[in-house]
């Protein structure tokens, strides 16, 4: 699937992704109309389903607000490719079915370019150049494969604590 890139810099915080004044809303569609408001105003107007976000270090730092990944889900984003992610955002993204992909030279990927993400080959290809993507940690793949934490949890009768420790 061909997608278009929206490029951002380092330390893009969750206030930038969705400003605090919209946290009263929970609907991804409503939140998406305010995504990156004041930071990149063309995003909400022009983003198309399947577009991909490219960013530098520490994407999603700050608040635990799940409204941030939800706003991006509402905008039709499926992948975020960044050099690194803030911890809570990373996990929230996986939980809501948004895939955060670590790419150590993401900043070399151009803005507004046509790209293709190949999860099997673990690479993103833009304008003829390929960039390697790090594997998603195993325990999170279970959630990714289920389509997010909600469908994953729905199937669970209960959980066994502290068993099956894995690295």
């Amino acid at each position: 699937m061909i997608m278009r890139t929206w490029k951002f810099g380092d330390n893009i915080d969750t206030d930038a992704i969705i400003p605090g004044r919209y946290l009263v809303y929970n609907d991804p569609g409503v939140l998406s109309t305010h995504a990156f408001e004041g930071t990149r105003n063309d995003f909400a107007k022009e983003v198309s389903k399947g577009d991909v976000i490219i960013a530098g270090r520490n994407f999603g730092c700050g608040s635990s607000r799940e409204h941030a990944p939800l706003a991006l889900v509402g905008a039709g984003i499926r992948f975020i490719v960044a050099e690194s992610f803030a911890r809570i955002f990373y996990r929230n993204a996986v939980n809501v079915g948004l895939l955060p992909l670590v790419c150590h030279n993401a900043r070399a990927i151009p803005d507004d370019a046509e790209c293709r993400v190949d999860l099997e080959k673990r690479e993103i290809t833009c304008q003829g150049r390929s960039y390697a993507i790090e594997p998603v940690p195993d325990f999170l793949l279970l959630i990714v494969d289920a389509g997010g934490l909600i469908p994953y949890a729905r199937k669970l009768e209960g959980v066994e604590t502290c068993t099956g420790s894995q690295r």
């Binding site: 635990s64 799940e66 934490l149 949890a153 959980v159």
Partner: peptide, 20 residues
Amino acid sequence: TGIGSTDMGFVLKFGALYFR
């Protein structure tokens, strides 16, 4: 530690959570 709302939904149900 701070978590998101879906992880919290999981905690409310199961009283446990995956931690690295």
